[in-house]
Amino acid sequence: MKPRLNVHISHELSERVEIAARRPGVTKAAVVEAALLGFFSKEFDDQRDGALIRRLDRIGRQYDRLERNLSITSETLALYVRFFLTVTPPLPNADQDAARALGKERFEYFVGQLARRIAGGRNMIRDVLEEVSADESEFFTETEIDALRNVRGQQANPGEGATQEAGDE
């Protein structure tokens, strides 16, 4: 005689067991026993582990992209602040109160714009890339475009043309 096991299962699962047991020669006990054997089998563990590994790999790739994007954003901000602090001359004492008031007003405007963009799900980089045309003729003269093409050609074939001296960048 086999051991008896009493369990409580959901109504949905119970209905599925009933449907499976309607087949000729199949009992509810056989359906439950087959399901438990499958659950405890090495193959089930391998399938579950494989699915888990795939999910972890996907999460790892997403994390790597987030880390890269955060690094780019941090570096961009640091370069901007360094540039801004380098080129901005100090204000005379008489103008500092007016500058603080204007700075506060501009910062409040900036925070409002930021809040609206985030709430609207907009992305500044995507917006800028859509607005800016990639056509070189809008940014350079024909002479400059030809010079760029020549430089690109030399970079593609590093053994040809003039050599770059140390210090030229």
Rank of each mutant, 00 (worst) to 15 (best):
100 R>M: 08
110 F>M: 05
109 Y>A: 05
95 D>V: 10
85 L>A: 02
108 E>C: 12
112 G>N: 05
114 L>V: 08
97 D>H: 01
82 R>M: 08
93 N>K: 08
84 F>I: 03
122 R>G: 00
116 R>L: 13
88 T>S: 08
95 D>R: 13
83 F>D: 05
101 A>N: 04
99 A>Q: 05
86 T>F: 13
129 L>A: 09
89 P>G: 03
118 I>Q: 03
80 Y>L: 13
113 Q>L: 15
128 V>R: 07
114 L>F: 15
119 A>K: 07
88 T>W: 12
92 P>D: 15
105 E>G: 01
92 P>W: 14
82 R>T: 10
108 E>S: 13
107 F>I: 09
83 F>P: 00
112 G>Y: 10
111 V>M: 14
126 R>V: 11
104 K>S: 07
94 A>D: 04
91 L>V: 05
113 Q>G: 04
101 A>K: 06
113 Q>P: 00
100 R>H: 03
122 R>E: 06
94 A>K: 04
121 G>K: 08
92 P>H: 14
120 G>S: 04
100 R>F: 07
103 G>V: 15
103 G>F: 15
87 V>W: 10
96 Q>W: 15
82 R>S: 05
87 V>R: 02
93 N>D: 14
106 R>N: 05
87 V>L: 05
85 L>E: 12
84 F>M: 05
94 A>W: 10
95 D>C: 09
99 A>N: 01
110 F>V: 03
102 L>F: 09
128 V>G: 00
117 R>G: 03
104 K>F: 13
80 Y>I: 09
116 R>G: 00
123 N>D: 12
119 A>I: 08
127 D>Q: 13
112 G>T: 06
89 P>E: 06
101 A>P: 00
82 R>C: 01
104 K>Y: 11
120 G>D: 02
112 G>D: 07
85 L>Q: 12
119 A>L: 12
108 E>Y: 14
110 F>A: 02
125 I>H: 04
103 G>K: 12
88 T>C: 08
88 T>M: 09
124 M>T: 06
112 G>L: 08
121 G>S: 09
116 R>T: 04
80 Y>S: 04
118 I>N: 03
115 A>G: 04
